[in-house]
Amino acid sequence: MIKSLLRRVSDSSVWRSIFRTGIPDTDLKRSMLIFNNFFLHIFPAKMKRHGLRFSYTFCLGGISCLLFIILTVTGILLMFLYTPSIERAYFDMQALALVLNGKILRNLHRWAAHGMVITVFLHMVRVFYTRSYRPPREFNWVIGILLLILTLALSYTGYLLPWDQLAYWGITVGTTIMAYTPFIGKHIRYFLLGADEVGHEALLRFYVLHCVVLPFSTALLMAIHFWRVRKDGGISGPL
């Protein structure tokens, strides 16, 4: 009864106009389901069995990507409630606790950000120990390292935005270390902060970097990273 109803719905012309493939009851239809769908077409129609083993990948790359998506969604919601100015930023943070679920929104963003630093790093460790960087995947490893650096940069620029003592002095300590660079250290610090000290200019710069420049760069590199995984023959084989 339910089965025949399902079949009638999935065979109807409206359903077919949206999803094209009916109930995936044959291998051909299961493949069609994947490459006829915009969101699924980045996946291969077939996968190597060992690549599905949890103990090979620990799903670390996937979890990193999931956390990035969660961070994008919660980040956009937070942008509605936040003003990047030293007069408003901290009090917006306090007011956030009064908004419905505002606190949970910020918690989700914060903990997902810390989580992403950890999972991206562990993903690198996993790829190293499985020796998955060997040809033809050398350059994808390089992109991966760039993504690790971008993840750290994203986390670090976000660290300043609440404009509390933790943020202010965390960024002061970090940028002081950068200023130790020989010859150009002072200039790097000035370029990043827009002033000699952490202030309004720094907050605005970090906000734009955190919400626009770095997420877009990360998304672009992620797209190339995934695309190359497919082009290099899917997930790497066992040692």
């Binding site: 030293i86 943070m93 306090q94 949970i104 202010y168 270390i177």
Partner: peptide, 29 residues
């Protein structure tokens, strides 16, 4: 992630103050 966010709040200390240096001042972890 939801469970962690329900039970652990993200830290929010006092308003940033360039005149009060915390001891020790620490970078992100």
């Amino acid at each position: 992630l939801f469970m962690i966010s329900l039970f652990f709040d993200a830290p929010l200390e006092d308003l940033a103050n360039p005149l009060v240096t915390p001891n020790p001042g620490k970078a992100p972890w």
